[in-house]
Amino acid sequence: MSTLHVLSHSPFGDDRLTSCLRVIGTNDALLLTGDAVYALQPGTAPFNALNARPLNLFVLAEDAQARALAIPDAARAIDYPAFVELSIHYDKVNSWL
């Protein structure tokens, strides 16, 4: 059973990213949307946490672009059709509301 975790809150405002990284499995993936893409800001604690371990990391491209954040090599930028396909590829989608 694999899960796509979807985050939309800024990692600088709450502990969702920390909690998510604690429970995420090796077959799971993480998709950053909205303000959650601020985790891609180099040199920050959330950025280091993302890079501290192997992770299937995806980023909603337009949300990163809107915030002028570069997509690191470890992440894949996706559009909405790819978001739909990702949600099918994984067995469950868990949105961290």
Binding site: S8, H9, S10, G34, D35, A36, S87, I88, K92, V93, S95, W96, L97
Partner: peptide
């Protein structure tokens, strides 16, 4: 449904 997708929060 095969998938439930929730949107909310920020």
């Amino acid at each position: 449904a095969d998938r439930l997708i929730c949107f909310g929060g920020a």
